[in-house]
Amino acid sequence: MARTRHPLEAAIESIVRLSGWSAIVFVALISLFLLKEGLPAFGEVPLASLFGTRWYPIEGFYALGPLIWGSLVVTVGAALFAVPLGVGAAMFIAEVAPRWLREVLKPLVEILAGLPSVVLGFLGIVVLVPAIRETLGLATGLTALTGSLLLAGMALPTIVSVAEDALDAVPSAYKIGSLALGASRWQTLWRVTLPAARTGVLTAIMLGVGRAIGETMAVMMVTGNAPVVLFGPHALVSPVRTMTATVAAEMGEVARGSVHYHVLFTVGLVLFVISFVVNVLASIVLLKRRAAAGRMLS
């Protein structure tokens, strides 16, 4: 049946369409710009330097490895702390805590999620850095571990809040069905509720860790800014420098168009590619899960 379209409806539709397309165009422009400024570095800097082990721009050493390594150590460290703690806290709030405690904790966590990272950076410098130096007996408290802990603190509220919503949305019929078969509360939580909420819990983890990967300020303030690669058990308690911190610290001082400038864009490019890949992988995982769930419900 043909229907005459209201002019307002048509206008709204074109605005929505425009917003959608402009998002795509912006992403395309950003990647083009990154490529234009970042790719020349591969011609200007010898590959041996780019893939070396020293980042020392004044003397022409531009190794990307130590920066990537720094980001990796700090992020993986943060995930190791934040994921179990965050999911555990979400399970506690959703399934164990009495109602009144739950009603206090939930908004509290949501406020924490909105805390600006510079504030956390201050806390890190004033409290965490000396605490780490003293308890571990280190020369300096500015280490990868400090950065990881701080980032974990930043990722935690997001993980807790989103995962708690997911756990809470699991139909109570599943829980009662499980309890009626002689499962304990804990067994029900572990074997039924958590698996049923896994898509939401995974989303929570990705959002939380995603925030950690992109974080700059707080990390720059507490990790010591040493672009070195250290393997082994000492890696966590030594100073490192992440990609984001490098760009933030050095971008203001380089001459536009210089080699150093181009390499910084290459660093940005690497970050962009990494987060792109992580996002694509995440969507594939989530889409697969959703397709399976859709099949189950139809």
Binding site: G177, V192, A196
Partner: peptide
């Protein structure tokens, strides 16, 4: 054991 009015298989 109990079987409820609305059957709910576990999600597995």
């Amino acid at each position: 054991g109990i079987v409820f009015a609305l059957p709910v298989p576990l999600p597995m």
